[in-house]
């Protein structure tokens, strides 16, 4: 029988692992799928962490995570990308080897940060840095949205692991805000696709000094 603590570790590992895998994926659907999977682990983590704490409300929170981050946002992104006939192949600024090198650097940095505090969870710092590096290294719009969502997952993981028990109303508010953000980004990405016929941010470099 796997104990609750094991589940907890498993979900944490999954959260990080799927996010790591998503970085290397060159195809959009795969990226979205991995994001959904890592969010699923976050939902699971929410449940186990709150059970470990002996609270029940984590369940609702996990439900929210599931509904918004596992189902709704990935679906919206996949839909928007499909509607816009976005090229499913995304481009990198860096070669794959460099990409992994950057990811390793991010993880190392997160490890160093988390090492300074016993209570600051490694996974959330790592996710924030991974999200940022995803946004820096990729050239397409959807990766930026996903990168933002990965960062957001990292922050949520901080809330779940380190703080825990954030009031439901606040949780829901944050979910709604994040979802609204993702929606606005999706709508905007549609505009970009319409205007430029591409989802490549390289075209979005008109505004310079």
């Amino acid at each position: 029988m796997i104990s609750l603590a094991h589940w907890n570790q498993l979900f944490t590992a999954g959260l990080l692992l799927f996010s790591l895998m998503l970085i290397g994926k060159p195809r959009l659907p795969a990226i979205i799928r991995h994001f959904a999977l890592s969010s699923l682990c976050l939902a699971g983590l929410t449940v186990t962490a709150s059970l470990l704490r002996g609270e029940a409300q984590g369940l609702y929170s996990a439900l929210g995570t599931f509904a918004f981050k596992v189902v709704f946002i990935p679906a919206v992104l996949a839909y928007a990308a499909k509607r816009a006939h976005a090229s499913m192949q995304v481009k990198f600024y860096l070669r794959p080897a460099m990409t992994y090198f950057a990811v390793a650097a991010a993880l190392l940095a997160a490890y160093l940060v988390a090492g300074r505090f016993a209570t600051v969870p490694f996974v959330s710092i790592a996710l924030v840095l991974l999200g940022l590096s995803l946004m820096i290294m990729r050239k397409d719009l959807y990766s930026q949205i996903i990168g933002f969502m990965v960062m957001e997952n990292g922050v949520a993981a901080y809330g779940v692991i380190a703080v825990g028990g954030i009031p439901l109303l606040v949780e829901i508010g944050i979910f709604l805000t994040v979802t609204a953000g993702a929606l606005v980004m999706a709508v905007l990405s549609r505009h970009v696709q319409e205007l430029y016929a591409t989802g490549d941010t390289e075209r979005l470099t008109e505004l310079t000094e």
Partner: peptide
């Protein structure tokens, strides 16, 4: 649209 994209991404970060 470009400005809006940069706006929302950078500010959201």
């Amino acid at each position: 649209v470009e400005a809006a994209w940069k706006y929302i991404i950078l500010c959201s970060i």
